[in-house]
Structures are given as C-alpha cells and as structure tokens.
C-alpha cells in the first residue's frame, strides 16, 4: 500500500480521531495490531549459514527490535435505507523503538481507555448491594 509510518505523536492524535469517529457514528470497529518489525530494519539479517545452524535464531536476536503498531477500521459501504456512505477504511501505523516501548504503552493505555468508552462501566449499585449482604451475613453469624 506504500503507506508511510507515522511518528508516535502523530499516531496518537490520529488514533484519537479514529476512536472519536467511531463514537460519533454510534457503531463500528477499531482494530489494533502489534508485531515485531522484521522487514526493512537497520539490523542486518543473520547470514544464511547461521540460520541453517540455528533454526531458532529469531528467539534471541543480537539486539532489541522495534515493534510495529497498526490501527485501522472497516470500510463503510453505501446501504439503502440507512445513512451509510461509501467511506474507505482508515489505516495508521507507527514504529516503536525498543527504548520508547514503556512510555509508548503508558500513553497507548490512556488513549485506549479514553477511546473505548462504550464498554460497560463498573456497576457501582451492584457492588454496594453485595457488600451490604455480606455485612448482614456476618451479623447473623455473630
């Protein structure tokens, strides 16, 4: 597809937009993918002889490798009787350097928590009820 990877900063703003878009639309899906970056990296691949010697070379690379993060949604198709239009899917990607990994995931968690607001909230009423019941049981026991 020839898309360019975004910087981490840019990725987070775009990701927030993607979540916001899904929220305003009222339905939809956001996919987030992560995998090791093994293509076109600066680290040279091990020589063929080494690979043949040790088929598990990828489990212990010489130096940490970057992680590729992708985010995308589904494309929308025009549908009669609804307000759906033809909209192409949004695709974002960024590369996280091994050193930035912890900082990135801290921000990533915040972004996801903010974006996935439609998931069920913690049910406070229920929790209170069970607590009260427990207390009652204890009293009976005493």
């Amino acid at each position: 597809m020839g898309r360019d990877h975004l910087s981490n900063e840019e990725f987070f703003t775009q990701l927030a937009n993607l979540f916001e878009y899904t929220r305003t639309k009222g339905h939809g899906t956001v996919y987030l993918t992560q995998k090791r970056m093994t293509f076109n990296t600066s680290s040279t691949p091990p020589p063929a002889s080494k690979v043949a010697d040790d088929p598990l070379w990828d489990t212990h690379p010489a130096e940490p490798l970057p992680v590729l993060i992708r985010a995308y949604n589904n494309k929308s198709k025009k549908k009669e009787g609804t307000d759906r239009e033809d909209i192409d899917k949004t695709q974002l990607s960024t590369i996280v350097k091994p050193d930035d990994l912890d900082g990135f995931y801290a921000r990533y968690a915040e972004a996801c928590k903010a974006g996935m607001s439609r998931l069920k909230k913690r049910d406070k009423k229920k929790a209170k009820k069970t607590k009260k019941r427990k207390k009652g049981e204890i009293k009976i026991g005493v």
């Binding site: 979540f19 899904t22 009222g26 339905h27 939809g28 899906t29 956001v30 996919y31 987030l32 993918t33 992560q34 995998k35 090791r36 996801c112 974006g115 996935m116 439609r118 998931l119």
Partner: peptide
C-alpha cells in the same frame, strides 16, 4: 506472532 485487539460497537 502478532496480537490484534478489536474494539467493536455493533447495533
């Protein structure tokens, strides 16, 4: 190995 997380809101 890759990890995909899917957040889905469906009517």
């Amino acid at each position: 190995t890759r990890i995909t997380s899917k957040y889905s809101v469906s009517k």
